[in-house]
C-alpha cells in the first residue's frame, strides 16, 4: 500500500471501520512511513482533544430533568385505540402471539433482554455463521498479522495461546456485535468443535470486571472484562472447561493474574 492509498483509508483505520486485511495493510505501511504516521498522530490528537473538551463540559441537567419529568405527567404514550368490538379479539391475538414467541424463545434459549445479552446473542450467531474453516477461508491466518490485530483490539502483543487446551490454528476477522467492533478469532481442536474468541476494547454495553457464563441455545458463552478489554468465548464446551479457558485468556491480558 502506498501513501496515497493510506491517506484515503486513514480515517476508516482510526475509526475501526476497515476490514481485517486492510487494517493490517495500513498498519504495516504506518510502521515504515513517518509522514503517514505523523498524519495519523495529528488526527488522533485532534480527535482526542475534542473528546477531552467535550467530557470536561459537564452540563447541569438537574433542572431540565425535573422539567422533563413534569412534562411527561401530562403527555400520554401513543397507543392505538381500536374499536370496542375489535378490542377483545386483538388483545387475545396479541397475547397468544406474544405467548408463542416467548415459549419459542425460551425453548431456543434466546430470551435475553438487555444490551449485554444482545451482545452475547450476537456472538453466538456470529460464531455459528463463521466458525467453520470454509466460512473463515478469507480470514487472517498469518501469526504476525494476527498478533498485530490482537494488539489493536485486545492491547496484547500476541494472539492468545490456547494450545494448553489443544486449540490451535487461529483464524481472525473483524466483526460487529450489536454495533461494537471485535476481533473474532476461531481456534480449532483435533476432536472437538471450534471455539470462538471475541476480543475488543471495553464497551459500556458489557459489565466491567465481571465474569459471566451463560448458556445460549446449545452454546456456552463466557465473558470477562479486564484492563479495558472485553473477552467473549463461545463454545460447545461444558461450564468447567469454558471457565478454565476464559481464566487462561484473562491471565494473558495486560495486568492479568
Amino acid at each position: 500500500m502506498n501513501c496515497y492509498q493510506v491517506k484515503e483509508l486513514i480515517q476508516l483505520f482510526m475509526d475501526d471501520e476497515l476490514d481485517a486485511r486492510s487494517t493490517l495493510e495500513v498498519q504495516q505501511h504506518l510502521e515504515s512511513c513517518t509522514a503517514c504516521r505523523r498524519l495519523l498522530e495529528a488526527l488522533l490528537v485532534q480527535d482526542q482533544l475534542l473528546k477531552q473538551a467535550t467530557c470536561a463540559d459537564k452540563p447541569n441537567s438537574s433542572q431540565l430533568r425535573t422539567r422533563i419529568l413534569a412534562a411527561l405527567q401530562h403527555q400520554p404514550v401513543v397507543t392505538k385505540r381500536p374499536k370496542l368490538t375489535q378490542l377483545t379479539w386483538r388483545r387475545l391475538t396479541a397475547t397468544a402471539v406474544a405467548a408463542i414467541i416467548i415459549v419459542l424463545l425460551l425453548l431456543r434459549g434466546l430470551w435475553m433482554p438487555g444490551q449485554r445479552e444482545s451482545v452475547y446473542a450476537a456472538s453466538v450467531s456470529d460464531h455459528a455463521m463463521h466458525c467453520s474453516v470454509e466460512a473463515m477461508s478469507q480470514a487472517i491466518t498469518n501469526p504476525e498479522e494476527l498478533d498485530q490485530l490482537a494488539t489493536r483490539y485486545g492491547r496484547i502483543g500476541k494472539i492468545p495461546d490456547l494450545s494448553a487446551f489443544s486449540y490451535s490454528a487461529p483464524r481472525g476477522r473483524i466483526c460487529e456485535l450489536n454495533g461494537i467492533k471485535f476481533l473474532h478469532v476461531v481456534y480449532y481442536h483435533p476432536t472437538k468443535q471450534p471455539l470462538s474468541l471475541f476480543l475488543g476494547p471495553h464497551s459500556a454495553q458489557l459489565s466491567a470486571e465481571q465474569l459471566t457464563v451463560l448458556r445460549q441455545d446449545r452454546y456456552l458463552v463466557s465473558a470477562a472484562s479486564r484492563s479495558g478489554v472485553d473477552l467473549l468465548v463461545v463454545s460447545l464446551l461444558d461450564e468447567q472447561q469454558a471457565l478454565a479457558i476464559i481464566n487462561a485468556l484473562v491471565a494473558q491480558l495486560p495486568g492479568g493474574d
Binding site: 422539567r67 422533563i68 397507543t79
Partner: peptide, 19 residues
C-alpha cells in the same frame, strides 16, 4: 426536552435491549 417528549410519546415502539 422536545426529544424526550417525542421519545415518551413513542416509547411503545422502542425495543428494550436495543440501543
Amino acid at each position: 426536552q422536545e426529544t424526550y417528549l417525542r421519545a415518551w410519546k413513542h416509547f411503545d415502539s422502542f425495543e428494550t435491549g436495543s440501543n
